[in-house]
Design a protein around this nucleic acid. Structure first.
Length: 791
DNA sequence: GTTCTAGAAC
DNA sequence: GTTCTAGAAC
């Protein structure tokens, strides 16, 4: 087969959306008796797209005709265009061939036209993302010779890095029926084999396969290189066909529930009405048959009703987050509940879940009262979610009032034990006491309060129709809810198996999220653990003995020796789970101790300045030539998560103190550039602002966490924190610790580097300008901005 | 937060 | 054999 065959079609019209074309395509499809497919390859130069496409075209053993449409070659020597590729794709499809789109397609917009074309011509559109480590792509792209697109040598590295920064992971919501992510050569071989073995009338299951991360930046390079990593991903990625299961010339054995109907591969069950009575009864029967109730979460839409979030967007987010979650965890069931049969959110979710072919035995909608699911609806579920208010108080109408009413006073008490307040985008697990009627009657063992975004001007935290922010918060809220639910289920399975952490079987054996589950579990059971994790109570002996320049020492247990940390500890316990849910180890108390008792440390030259409100301290382990901390002395203000509007004057003064010290350092060395900001989730207790020069020239900067805590969104610029609190009353501290495990990228040119030493040698010489967002709003302080007003 | 160290990567 | 990371302990 001509590898560039896709470019050879000539007379067919360019893609259009005329109805005539639709009918024609459908007729042709029927005539052919098969289902064509457009495979959109997604990957930077060097990721192996052409090799992939050639291997599929040349190795097809099952009789499916393929064409490769390659932008590098379609221009016959000149640079090819997307339009040319679209036309060639359209032509090849009309000739009855399936098509591989060999261009980078890293951004959603770049892919959209191909998806649209596929949909117009009624063919499945798949994405195959070649998510290889940046350094692999770079080294291939740099060293290759005679590349079709003439991208090789030194400029290739620059191009690959630049492209990867713009990468948007393909999503089902873009219109792909199937997305496959290949993280190494083994994955790629499997994918090639899969397409090679795809006969003319075969379809592949819909869904997402092998995807590890959704963010625009790949996770740590080293992680990609670990052996065995990909196999665990495969196991958890849902139904799939492997080469060993499919023989050339034979129909692929599709999973039982998969059936090709009207050109859409879809679980049959989803085709049924999900909201009718029969549907409810069917699920009710299922839940009687085993212990599925203990693995079921019933949740209301948390952003609509009183919160007035756009239903269409809300339903997209519910379906997306649920699909992601179900993909990660087997054997768990999610049920979206609403009182009304006419509920718009239920019908939207139902429709979108169906389109995404989500297994409807694991995610479905249910009409009924969330407080009477078992007694009135026959649906067993041990965990229900509450669309809570930020005060976590009963009342207010809607689901919140209904759940508090049905659960009785004990839920209120139990909630108060766990948390005082809830920030939008977060959730808190409350074990429901067995005396609660909701527990006794309905079998509900846990309530998860969750707070989504609010678009209702009459409610707190009104987002003024900022749907960018609102959608982000809503995703966080559902993710938090689902992950907390997973922790509960895992705890339950652990108990069933007679030992803690033994519940993995509930999730289908090994899972790419095993480590995540462990972490989530520890979070979920934090209340229980807290007591165990508390620093030891001090002895008289321990009350003395500060070391190291008379400074509070991170490793000295005496840091726990004053009464204050213990008081605060009680407060932590009271608030655990949400607003102040962090447990501070003994080593994390040093800044707190200093803030409360600076007089004890007055003989050290590490302290640059002390006032009633602030302390300015040289960081004991500076991560750059100049690195100081402005520490608040307010007791109870442990981190960004505790900051509220009333702290704004303090934050502004901390900022000013930081700017003042940056300016002093600039007088000594005008070449420095400073950034002022907070860590989203600090390791050390007591709110502190980092003032750090951007050379990062320090032997104390040793690992990925160090680097990423200053070079990713984990570092929140002081100006942004202040603005956010002015506008919304609190700061959104990204609690996503995955960000700290991301691959190492230069903070100036954003190039990727395989390890810390290599990164360091790069940043020592990188003269690129800083990313544009840092050049705005005085996020950087340098000799050129010195005389500007920085607040 | 750091230190220590096993074991993976090179 | 050396370098580097990541997780446990503190």
């Amino acid at each position: 087969m001509n590898p560039d065959g896709g470019g050879s079609s000539s007379s067919s019209p360019p893609p259009s959306t005329s109805l005539g074309a639709d009918a024609d395509a459908e007729a042709k499809e029927e005539e052919r008796g098969g289902k064509q497919v457009v495979v959109v390859l997604v990957g930077p130069p060097g990721s192996g797209k052409s090799t992939f496409a050639d291997a599929v075209v040349a190795g097809s053993t099952a009789g499916r005709p393929w064409a490769r449409v390659c932008q590098d070659t379609i221009g016959n020597g000149k640079a090819g265009t997307k339009i040319q590729c679209l036309k060639a794709t359209s032509d090849a499809l009309k000739e009855g061939r399936s098509v591989l789109i060999d261009r980078c397609n890293l951004e959603r917009e770049q892919r959209a036209d191909f998806v649209k074309l596929g949909s117009t011509l009624h063919v499945d559109v798949h994405a195959v993302a070649l998510d290889l480590p940046a350094k692999v792509c770079i080294s291939r792209a740099v060293s290759r010779k005679g590349h079709e697109g003439n991208l090789q040598g030194g400029k290739a590295a620059l191009v690959v890095n630049r492209m990867l920064q713009k990468k948007e992971t393909p999503l089902l919501t873009e219109g792909f029926s199937r997305i496959m992510s290949c993280n190494d050569d083994g994955d790629i071989k499997k994918a090639v084999d899969l397409y090679n073995a795809l006969g003319p009338s075969d379809s592949l299951p819909s869904g997402i396969f092998g995807q590890k991360s959704k963010g625009p930046v790949q996770v740590g390079i080293m992680k990609f290189l670990k052996k065995g990593d990909t196999s665990s991903v495969e196991k958890s990625s849902g139904p799939k066909i492997t080469l060993s299961e499919s023989k050339p010339g034979q129909q692929n054995p599709l999973p039982k529930h998969e059936k090709v109907e009207d050109g859409i591969t879809c679980p049959v069950e989803v085709e049924k009405g999900l909201n009718d009575k029969n549907e409810n009864e069917e699920h009710a029967k299922e839940s009687d048959s085993d212990d599925v109730g203990s693995r079921t979460l019933a949740f209301p839409s948390i952003s609509t009703a009183d919160f007035q979030f756009d239903l269409d967007r809300a339903s997209d987010i519910i379906v997306d987050t649920a699909a992601d979650f179900l993909q990660k965890f087997d054997n768990i069931r999610l049920v979206l509940v609403d009182l009304s049969k006419k509920s718009k959110i239920l019908s939207l979710v139902k429709e979108k879940a169906s389109k995404k072919s989500i297994d409807c035995s694991r995610f479905f909608t249910f009409v009924g009262d969330i407080t009477q699911l078992y007694t009135k609806g026959g649906l067993q579920c041990s965990v229900i979610a509450n669309a809570a208010n930020w005060r976590l108080k009963p009342g207010g109408g809607g689901v919140n009032a209904a759940i508090f009413n049905a659960a009785g006073e004990s839920l209120h008490h139990a909630t108060k034990k766990c948390a005082d307040a809830l920030r939008p985008g977060t959730s808190v697990v409350v074990p429901l006491p067995s005396i609660s009627p909701l527990h006794q009657r309905e079998g509900v063992t846990h309530v998860i309060h969750v707070l989504g975004p609010n678009m209702n001007p009459m409610r707190p935290d009104y987002l003024k129709n900022d749907y960018i922010k609102g959608s982000k918060i809503l995703r966080e809220a559902y993710n938090s809810l689902f992950e907390n639910f997973a922790s509960i289920v895992q705890g339950h399975m652990g108990k069933q198996n007679g030992k803690s952490g033994a519940g993995m079987s509930a999730f289908g054996g090994t899972s790419p999220n095993d480590t995540k589950m462990k972490r989530e579990d520890s979070h979920g059971s934090e209340r229980m653990k807290k007591h165990k994790m508390l620093p030891p109570i001090m002895t008289a002996k321990q009350q003395h003995g500060c070391t190291k320049a008379n400074m509070p020492n991170y490793h000295d247990k005496s840091m726990t020796s004053s009464a204050a940390p213990n008081q605060a500890r009680e407060r932590d316990i009271k608030k655990s789970g949400v607003v102040t849910n962090k447990t501070w180890g003994s080593w994390a108390q040093a800044l707190y101790e200093l803030a409360m008792h600076p007089e004890k440390y007055k003989n050290t030259d590490s302290i640059l300045e002390t006032s009633d409100e602030l302390i300015v301290l040289k960081d004991l382990y500076p991560k750059a030539k100049k690195h100081v901390l402005v520490i608040s002395r307010t007791d109870g203000l442990d981190s960004l998560a505790d900051v509220r509007k009333e702290h704004l004057p303090l934050l502004r003064r901390m900022h000013s103190a930081g700017v003042k010290w940056a300016q002093k350092f600039l007088e000594e060395d005008a070449s420095l550039v400073f950034r002022l900001g907070y860590h989203s989730v600090p390791s050390m207790r007591q709110l502190h602002l980092h003032i750090i020069s951007q050379d990062f020239d320090s032997t104390s900067l040793k690992n990925k966490k160090h680097w990423n805590s200053f070079s990713t969104p984990f570092f929140r610029d002081s100006v942004d924190v202040i603005e956010e609190i002015e506008q919304h009353g609190s700061a959104t501290a990204s609690s996503d610790e995955k960000i700290l495990a991301m691959e190492l990228r230069c903070h100036r040119c954003r190039s990727a580097h395989p390890n810390i030493p290599k990164l360091k040698s790069h940043i020592a010489n990188c003269k690129s300008s800083f990313p544009s967002h840092l050049l705005q709003k005085n996020r950087l302080i340098s000799s050129s901005t010195m005389h500007m007003d920085c607040t």
